[in-house]
Design a protein around this nucleic acid. Structure first.
Length: 345
DNA sequence: AAGCGAAGCAACCGCGAACCG
DNA sequence: GCGGTTCGCGGTTGCTTCGCT
C-alpha cells in the first residue's frame, strides 16, 4: 500500500535529504539577501522546498558558525547541568553552547548522555539516582567479581594502595545524595535562564555533607541505606588512619572544613589519576571527597564524638574541575567508560 | 562477503507562540 | 480583541553507517 501524497508533494515540493546543489542555492541566496521570510525564500531562491525545510537546513547544517565534531567534556557537562535546570529546552541549552544547534544537542542527549546516565543508575529526567539498594548491591558485586579490565581486590578500593574505586564511590555518591530541589518553571527570558544557570552552578559548587550515623539510628531510619554508609565509613576510617593516607590540594578547594559545629580537620585524599589507552585521564573520585573528623576541641553537643562526616565537593567551577580533576562521574559517563571507570583501560 | 541489528543523525511533523493587519 | 499567518520548538521518523555474527 502506498502512502498518500502529502500537501508538499502535491505542490511539487521536494522532501528528504538535501543535495549539494540545493545547499549551494540556499547559501548563495542567504549570503545575498539574508535569512528570514522563510515562507517566500524557497521560491525566490529557486528551491522546490518548503520554507520550513529551508530554515531547518540553514539553522541546523549550513549556518557558517556551526561547530562540528565531538562534544567536549565541558560542553557535555554544560548540557547535563543545564538540562537538570531547564529540562528539554534544547534551544535554550543551545544558546549557551556557541556553534551547537538545538537539534544536535537533542540528538546527542538522546543517543549518548541519556543512555549513559541510565547506565549509571541516574534518572535522565530528574537527574536523581533511580537505583534501589538491590540494584546498587548487584552492581557492586558484579564490579567486584566480574570486571574484566580492573581486578579490584576490594569493591571500594583500587589496588590496595588507598586508591578508592572511583566508579563505585560515584555510584554511592549519587545513591546517597538527596534529590535536588524541583527546577523552576521554564522561562524563555534570557536573564531568567542565566539566573537559573548561575543558581545551578552555585548549588553544584556548594558542599553537601552527609553526617554518618551510628548503626542503630541509621538502621532505624533508612535500613536499606545502612550498608553503604557503614561500608564507606569503615573504608574511609581505614584509609585515613595515620601514616597511610596522602593528602594534597588542601588549599585548592573551597574551605570545606569550616562548618557549623566545627572546628573540623579536613583533608582531601590525594588525587590519583590513571589514564586510559587514549591518554585521557581516568578520574579518581579522591578529589571529590573530603573526610572530616571532629577535632579534640569539638563540642560533643554539636557532634557526636563517634561520628564522622563525609563531605562531597560536588561540582565546582569548570576551571576547578579541569584543574583538580574533580568530576570523574560526568567524565566517565561522557566518555563511555564503564560504571567502574574501566572500559578503555 | 552477506545479513542483520544497533547506533547516529538529518530531516520531518505537529503544535503553540509570536506577530501582524 | 480577533483571526490568519509565520516562525520556532520539541518529539519523532527514517535513512545511513557501523559493527558484529
Amino acid at each position: 500500500m502506498t502512502k498518500p501524497a502529502s500537501d508538499d508533494q502535491k505542490n511539487g515540493l521536494k522532501k528528504g535529504p538535501w543535495t549539494p546543489e540545493e545547499d549551494q542555492k540556499l547559501i548563495d541566496y542567504i549570503h545575498e539577501h539574508g535569512h528570514g521570510k522563510w515562507r517566500t525564500l524557497p521560491k525566490n531562491a529557486g528551491l522546490k522546498r518548503c520554507g520550513k525545510s529551508c530554515r531547518l537546513r540553514w539553522t541546523n547544517y549550513l549556518r557558517p558558525d556551526i561547530k562540528r565534531g565531538r562534544f567536549s567534556f565541558g560542553e557535555e557537562e554544560t548540557i547535563i547541568q543545564l538540562h537538570s535546570v531547564l529540562g528539554n529546552k534544547w534551544s535554550t541549552i543551545a544558546a549557551s553552547l556557541p556553534g551547537r544547534t538545538d537539534n544536535e544537542i537533542k540528538n546527542y542527549w538522546n543517543t549518548h548522555i541519556k543512555k549513559k546516565l541510565l547506565k549509571m543508575g541516574i534518572d535522565p529526567v530528574t537527574h536523581t539516582p533511580c537505583l534501589d539498594f538491590q540494584q546498587l548491591s548487584s552492581i557492586l558485586n558484579s564490579s567486584l567479581h566480574n570486571s574484566p579490565h580492573v581486578n579490584y581486590p576490594d569493591p571500594l578500593y583500587g589496588m590496595g594502595n588507598n586508591t578508592l574505586n572511583p566508579s563505585l564511590l560515584s555510584l554511592l555518591t549519587a545513591f546517597l545524595s538527596p534529590p535536588p530541589p524541583p527546577p523552576p518553571p521554564p522561562s524563555q527570558n534570557p536573564d531568567a535562564v542565566n539566573q537559573s544557570f548561575q543558581q545551578s552552578q552555585q548549588l553544584n559548587n556548594s558542599i553537601q555533607t552527609f553526617p554518618l550515623q551510628d548503626n542503630q539510628s541509621c538502621a532505624a531510619s533508612q535500613p536499606l541505606r545502612l550498608e553503604p554508609h557503614q561500608l564507606m565509613k569503615a573504608k574511609l576510617d581505614q584509609m585515613i588512619s595515620p601514616g597511610t593516607a596522602n593528602f594534597s590540594y588542601q588549599n585548592s578547594l573551597p574551605n570545606v572544613g569550616q562548618q557549623e559545629g566545627g572546628p573540623y580537620s579536613t583533608s582531601l585524599v590525594e588525587n590519583q589519576i590513571a589514564h586510559n589507552k587514549r591518554g585521557e585521564p581516568n578520574f579518581n573520585l579522591g578529589s571529590l571527597i573530603s573526610y572530616s573528623t571532629p577535632s579534640s576541641s569539638a563540642s560533643p553537643s554539636t557532634l557526636n564524638s563517634s561520628a564522622s562526616s563525609i563531605t562531597f565537593v560536588n561540582g565546582a567551577t569548570e576551571e576547578e574541575r579541569d584543574t583538580y580533576c574533580s568530576n570523574m562521574l560526568v567524565y566517565n559517563i561522557s566518555n563511555g567508560l564503564n560504571i567502574d571507570g574501566s572500559g578503555l583501560l
